[in-house]
Amino acid sequence: MYDQAQLMRGTLEGCILKVISLETTYGYEIAAKLQQYGFSEIKEGTLYPLLVRLEKKQMITSTFCPSPLGPSRKYYSLTLEGKQLLKEFEVCWKEIAKVVNTILEEETK
């Protein structure tokens, strides 16, 4: 059976950047949004290591803010480098998607 998770893993970083670029948000909300878009298996625990990695690479930045529920939340926003990386990801993804779609359509003809 095809390993869908492996395919998702490569693209998840770019999708996280896109979600964060829309508005400053926190881990659980990012996971919920990604689930809405179709990444059904995504949990906050799956995202956290990726968020730490992106923060280390200075693609995103975080701040603790109080939440309506009580405990403070870690809110993430994009840095300039992150915005640049997102742009590059969008270009790359469109190219790859175009190539893959062309190949797949060719096979079905």
Partner: peptide, 12 residues
């Protein structure tokens, strides 16, 4: 972070 996640999860 883990404490924050746990607290929020338990609140909901």
């Amino acid at each position: 972070d883990l404490i924050g996640m746990a607290l929020e999860a338990e609140h909901s």
